[in-house]
Design a protein around this nucleic acid. Structure first.
Lengths: 182, 182, 182, 182
DNA sequence: AATGAATGAGCATTCATTCAT
DNA sequence: GATGAATGAATGCTCATTCAT
């Protein structure tokens, strides 16, 4: 979708239906014709972005299981964002505009829950395997780990130079390992 | 400033100079009179918000030094955001709109650097005191720790119910202690 | 026709071809397919309304002839409008929009001429029977009588409560009788 | 007001705020700037038209009192409309669009009440003077007389040629005299 | 210093119309 | 014959900006 590019580049509020339509090779009026309102269009677009983002992040990575599998997953998160900054930018634009726009908040909230649930599964499996210390509350750990991932990518988007992604990734993985291991 | 309320409640792009002026008890035209352009006004406002936010977060907390002092500081971050959600919301609104608006990005970037520098000071002091493992790269750790703090607060703003702040705070502090301790 | 309902309820300019088509159980595009343009459709619709209205009003009423027959006809006009307000509303909507839309004016003018001609027939017959004073100019009397009928119904449509139709009808009939009788 | 001209010429729904502003020698945006919405602007305009119309029609005419004074007033109504067809056209455009637009209906209804009240005063005075038959219900007579006036002017606007105003006026006055006189 | 008046640019939205199926 | 897709034009409305007090 062409609107994704606009959102990624200039933010959610710079998106105009007219420009989206024209950038997509259609007429100015098409988006307004298909969607009931701009808000509806925005919701559809955001759902699309969020779903696409979810597909990227959630896809099965063949690899180790347990704690190391989880850490690999976190590493993947860092590397993946760099490969397709466009979708990442769009996602973070939506993320940033979410408070105050209840319609978007719902989508965003759903994604967060899904992500945290996946993390929890990994954490519990790690505990069961004796690799992760059993005194953690998976739901609580999942929150800050997801937060760190998103926060780091957000800082990277804000200031690429001051956020050396590979170094941060490695430091994060080592620290999470030490934080969680039994 | 009254504009802060608007930004906190409805986002950066919902801010109109006229409304800001009127909400502040002045005329519609005042903001336009004071500032050269809306962008200039927005920059000034964001600088104001960022600075105020910095003042809150960076203020000296009498307490322990070293690793435990650092962890206390992190705890404080969690608790402080809940006390004054308005300034937190405004800050995150700016944070979210920052990419694609270079003028804001500069402010935001400066704040991030200041925060990370403070963290680095703590981390280095912790290393010097033998409390923090010496193999870390302070600059890299600072990035993800700051990211986690912001990310958690962002999730809390997005979905208050699904983000049990006290539990997450405690889990985070324990995990960071384990991650960093020598 | 479904379009009649729209015109009656919300006025002539609220009519859209798409809505008319859909309300009639067909597709949005049907009206545009049948008629060359919206104006053509509007003319056809108005002719339809006017003709239907004419059928109602002009239909043979078995009853007395002469002055009393004429007065009965006037009474019938009052009563008939209340029985089917929908067609009445549609007709008055067209009537009100007629000036400035030459295409409609033609239809409307034709109807007025037909109505006045009918009235004139009655009036002349009444004169011939010696019931109506011979010094009137039937064409002139017909104008204001028709005008009064339409005007009363128009006021009734505008403010039903303030226009007690039966009382007005009776007063009108008595007054017209006195005005015309020889 | 320039908008009056547009309404008079092409009807209420052809009025665009932009054209009204430009025709008045101002910018396209002025009307939208001053009024909260188009509906609000329309209401204000209609109130203006109605009031101006009321001023014309209600103004004191030095002349006879009683029945003859009333009839003079009716004559004046006919003649006045021809003198300033613009305001008459505008008024009738509003009148025609009134059903289905509750905001306008209120104004219109108020004017009708005022006009009928004036008529009733004349009728009662005529009864008191013994010139008008005492068996009439002034409120009911006022309705159809006002209706006739408006209806005749409406027909004249629709088809000037087929509505010989002076003849109709004279016929109307004679008939009303006969209808009402004691 | 502060304000109201006024404007132009831009946006979402509606709708008649055309076209391909 | 009937329909959905697509478009351009027009409109109400918002808002930053300028100007005259």
């Amino acid at each position: 979708m062409a609107a994704l590019q606009i959102i990624a580049d200039r933010g959610i509020d710079e998106l105009t239906l007219a420009e989206a339509g024209q950038l997509a090779g259609y007429s100015r009026a098409l988006p307004a014709h298909y969607f009931a309102s701009k808000d509806a269009a925005l919701i559809a677009l955001c759902d699309f972005v969020v779903e696409k983002y979810l597909q990227r992040v959630q896809r099965r990575i063949p690899g180790r299981e347990g704690l190391e599998g989880f850490l690999e997953r976190l590493e993947h998160y860092f590397d993946d964002g760099r490969k397709d900054p466009r979708i990442l930018r769009a996602f973070h634009a939506i993320l940033g505009a979410s408070p105050g726009k209840p319609a978007l908040a719902k989508s965003i909230s759903g994604l967060a829950e899904a992500s945290k649930a996946t993390f929890c599964d990994f954490l519990r499996a790690g505990i069961a395997r004796g690799e992760i210390r059993p005194d953690i509350v998976p739901e609580a750990e999942a929150v800050w780990i997801l937060a760190a991932l998103r926060g780091v990518m957000g800082q990277w988007l804000n200031d690429e130079e001051k956020t050396p992604l590979p170094k941060v990734r490695d430091a994060f993985v080592v620290s999470v390992r030490r934080a969680l291991q039994a």
